[in-house]
Design a protein around this nucleic acid. Structure first.
Lengths: 156, 156
DNA sequence: GGTCTCCTACTCGGATACATAATGTCCGAGTCCCCACGG
DNA sequence: CCGTGGGGACTCGGACATTATGTATCCGAGTAGGAGACC
């Protein structure tokens, strides 16, 4: 799975502490990431409606909606795309009892099982929001909010 | 996720109908797959202890143990490797409050959440065995056993 | 002093290279089967 | 007729190309902000 997912998750969390846009360069410097490449990932989050971008000076990225409404699944699908974990190519079509017009994504027993596992995975990810993570972090490290804001301002 | 997983799943199911080894070429022709590449995937299943291979004429691959003891997870991990879906690179180490000696695979809230989803996925896959799939298929298509055996023999 | 204009610096956004892993192919080592030969 | 040895064909196994995907980079379009000139 793409490494950009991890970057996107942490960056979204960092953005929850802020109330003004932060440029991609600053967000990248936070974890010493390649700035242009993080920018690319953030663009995907913008397309998914998770972030909004403002160009020009004092511009950057910020959350498009409340952290409570952003699930981890939203971020993962924004980066990785909507395809399920195992893309079923319906090789049964090439098999012996292949009837044209049959959708083996539905009838194939393996596809059903894999889809079930895929749904379980997505259910877990959909249940956890960025706000939940922020609450967990705040509980363990109450200074995170101030620390993050300070560091962002220092890099700005 | 690698396409070889789908091939391995269906091939293992086909092998449950047989009691003699089947060569990779025959198993590949069953679904019109590239023979040498399927061979490569089957080698991984052998290394994982799911199949056994016998060389020479009348040789090929066969199940190493009862289908009831082969879970879908076994096959997936044999092909894809044991890594979890999202490999956490601990980018927090580069962050502000990074304390050396802390394993962020454990403490990072995102890593925990992703690990939970990963476990849910694996639990689903581990619960379903090749024998379960075979039972499902037999229920819907009782002729599958004879059909598969006949086709394998025809290709042999 | 206030206001308008222009210019500069800064940002995102997409088009462009590079690296890595998945996919696909090929040939060699080992093994079994079959057949011919000898007893 | 039966046992035995050798040749041939078949199989896996790993080493070698090729393609696709993820990773990384660069430059252009657009915008806000500020400096300077003019009223």
């Amino acid at each position: 799975m793409s490494q950009g997912v991890e970057w996107a998750l942490h960056t979204c969390l960092n953005l929850t502490w802020l109330d003004t846009p932060a440029p991609a360069g600053v967000l990248a410097a936070f974890y010493e990431l390649p700035p242009a490449y993080l920018n690319k990932q953030l663009q995907a989050l913008v397309r998914a409606g998770i972030l909004t971008s403002v160009p020009g000076p004092r511009g950057g990225f910020q959350l498009a909606r409340a952290p409570e409404t952003i699930s981890l699944l939203d971020i993962v699908t924004a980066i990785e795309g909507p395809e399920e974990l195992l893309r079923c190519d319906q090789i049964l079509n090439k098999g012996p009892g292949s009837h044209a017009g049959v959708d083996y994504r539905q009838s194939c027993a393996f596809a059903q099982a894999m889809r079930g596992a895929d749904l379980a995975w997505r259910r877990e990810l959909a249940a956890k929001t960025v706000a939940d993570i922020r609450a967990d972090v705040t509980r363990l490290h109450p200074s995170s909010s101030a620390d993050t804001r300070a560091r962002i301002d220092a890099l700005r």
